[in-house]
Design a protein around this nucleic acid. Structure first.
Lengths: 162, 162
DNA sequence: GTGAAATTGTTATTTTATAACATAACCAGA
DNA sequence: TCTGGTTATGTTATAAAATAACAATTTCAC
């Protein structure tokens, strides 16, 4: 069955992510409302990470009422629940591939097609934490993003991330 | 001799950074103009990293003409020359502690006082590059920032970074 | 000096994000 | 099932960060 709002079928990743999000929220007593769920779905359905205003445009195309706070509040909720990440270097949002484990995340981001690869290297985490610990620095949030070109784009494949 | 535009004496770090910047630019044939030099000086004189508009305010207080592009162009130059870094998680700029070596930089940033500690851990760099290489990903820029609390602020010292 | 290139000045606009307050939905307890 | 507090959403306005576009000026090699 295709997505309720799009001509394209929902990617399997998206469906699974939404199911897991619902489960996690239920377990936590957090309310994954229709709006929040839809925003998460939009993010997962997009091949490339989306900015807040791009999400807003999609919501409006669906006939929903909406203004910037509508989107930013939903994004704030999803960020708090660890269901999405904000990529600070591009001001865009992408679905979290390891929800449930509150983590900073480490990303490879293709500047050409928008492909996002989320790493999860414990040695890297450890090394970062260690650098902070040596300096008696308490880490509350981390941003690890590498921008560049993905293999496909390096080979001249001029399509969008899939 | 104190700074030409401030009541406070220029920190030794700032003086040294400016000298090295001048040298590097000379070697490269890049023009560290009065405006660019002054912006770099403002950044180095500040205990906490500054946003573009904070820098603009300082320039205007000095009676200079100025609009956002004035500052952003100077910042772009300084970024290109590797003399400053942009901290994407806070939209602020800070002086580079290892100018000359074009590098992404890794930062510990105190959210309370603005203290910035620039790391330079080769093993960390290597680990990041390796993760990218494994995925055949070409890295063009990197952002590694850890936000939290510095030792002083953890101990309740409520002053600004020095 | 002259002309091309680089830098700066200036106005306007775009993009990203939040403040403030009104309305509506939800839900626990009487 | 009221009721009242909490949470979520609607709405208007504004703040904050960054860039576009073009004019004027400076710089510097020739």
């Amino acid at each position: 069955m295709p997505s309720s709002k799009s001509d394209r079928p929902m990617p399997p990743d998206a469906r699974q992510a939404l199911e897991q999000a619902a489960l996690l929220c239920q377990q936590r007593g957090a309310r994954l409302t229709e709006l929040r769920r839809r925003v998460l779905e939009i993010i997962w359905n997009s091949p490339a990470p989306l900015g807040a205003y791009a999400i807003l445009d999609i919501l409006r195309d669906e006939g929903r009422p909406g203004a910037p706070p509508t989107v930013y509040r939903a994004l704030d909720f999803l960020l708090e629940q660890g269901l999405i990440h904000r990529l600070a270097s591009l001001n865009v949002f992408t679905g979290c591939r390891q929800p449930g484990s509150h983590h900073g995340g480490q990303f490879l981001i293709c500047q050409e097609c928008g492909l996002v690869d989320e790493l999860s290297n414990p040695r890297l985490e450890e090394l970062l934490q260690n650098e902070a610990a040596i300096r008696q620095f308490e880490v509350l949030a981390q941003t690890v993003e590498m921008l560049g070109r993905c293999p496909a784009c390096r080979n001249g494949v001029a399509r969008h991330a899939g």
